[in-house]
Amino acid sequence: MNRYAALLRGIMPANPNMRGEKLRGVFEGLGFASVGSVLASGNVVFGCAETDVPALESRIQQALNAELGIGGGTIVRSRDELRELVDSDPFPGLTHGRNTYLTATFLKDRAGGAPPEPPAALAAAVRIVGYDRAAGAVLAVIDNSVSGTTNHMTWLETVYGKDITTRTWLTVQKVSAKL
């Protein structure tokens, strides 16, 4: 049995259709085993025998849309991919905190590669640490004490399109631990 994490885009916990129990129900209805949710931000872990990740992403997204009206986007990563990412310690010596967010932006299209340097308007607020090809993740440090950090996501969408989703490093670690 393979273990996976589904990282869902556009989840708003205040929406009753996007709460953990309903999300888990969709995954259980698809026949996945040992389904669990992590936090309330669209992270679902599960087990299945399938190995075709793009097919899994499509199947999950179709079910979420049909059953709960969730059209955001689904990105799936394996337990091994997330563990290797966490074990690589891409933020050595840094601590996620109120003013400094350590983030991982997962790309559906892993061939997207590392982004270009952020535009000058973001240079004071965003530092790209690297790109983890195996996990398809852009790793960044965001300085929340500087205004304009929300433009980071807008910039990433101009580089990669909307088939991306960002998690804090703490969330990535929690998801990996639950797998």
Rank of each mutant, 00 (worst) to 15 (best):
1 M>L: 14
2 N>A: 10
5 A>Y: 03
7 L>Y: 04
8 L>A: 07
8 L>D: 05
10 G>L: 04
10 G>N: 03
11 I>S: 00
12 M>I: 09
14 A>G: 14
16 P>T: 15
16 P>Y: 09
16 P>V: 06
18 M>N: 06
19 R>V: 01
21 E>F: 03
21 E>W: 04
22 K>W: 03
23 L>A: 04
24 R>K: 15
25 G>W: 04
26 V>T: 10
29 G>V: 08
29 G>E: 08
31 G>D: 12
32 F>D: 11
35 V>A: 06
36 G>D: 07
37 S>K: 00
37 S>R: 05
38 V>A: 01
38 V>W: 00
38 V>R: 00
38 V>Y: 01
41 S>Q: 07
42 G>P: 02
43 N>L: 00
47 G>A: 14
47 G>L: 05
49 A>P: 07
49 A>E: 15
50 E>F: 03
53 V>L: 08
53 V>C: 12
54 P>D: 04
58 S>W: 12
58 S>F: 10
60 I>W: 04
61 Q>S: 14
62 Q>P: 13
63 A>V: 10
64 L>H: 12
67 E>G: 11
69 G>D: 12
70 I>M: 11
70 I>Y: 05
72 G>R: 02
73 G>M: 13
74 T>K: 06
74 T>Y: 02
75 I>S: 10
76 V>I: 07
76 V>L: 08
79 R>E: 15
80 D>T: 15
81 E>V: 07
83 R>M: 08
83 R>T: 11
87 D>H: 09
87 D>Q: 11
93 G>C: 09
93 G>I: 05
96 H>Q: 08
97 G>M: 07
97 G>Y: 02
98 R>Q: 10
99 N>K: 09
101 Y>I: 05
102 L>G: 02
102 L>I: 06
105 T>G: 06
106 F>I: 07
108 K>E: 14
111 A>Y: 15
111 A>T: 14
112 G>E: 11
112 G>T: 11
113 G>A: 03
114 A>R: 14
116 P>N: 08
117 E>D: 13
118 P>V: 05
119 P>Q: 15
122 L>G: 10
122 L>P: 03
124 A>V: 01
124 A>G: 07
125 A>W: 02
127 R>T: 13
127 R>E: 14
128 I>F: 11
128 I>N: 09
128 I>K: 10
130 G>Q: 06
135 A>M: 09
141 V>L: 12
143 D>M: 00
144 N>W: 07
144 N>I: 06
145 S>A: 14
146 V>W: 02
148 G>M: 10
152 H>Q: 11
153 M>T: 12
157 E>T: 13
159 V>N: 09
159 V>F: 07
159 V>Q: 02
160 Y>F: 03
162 K>G: 15
162 K>F: 10
163 D>Y: 11
164 I>Y: 00
164 I>A: 01
165 T>V: 04
166 T>M: 10
168 T>P: 00
169 W>L: 09
170 L>M: 14
171 T>R: 02
172 V>I: 06
172 V>S: 02
173 Q>P: 07
173 Q>R: 09
176 S>T: 10
176 S>R: 01
177 A>D: 15
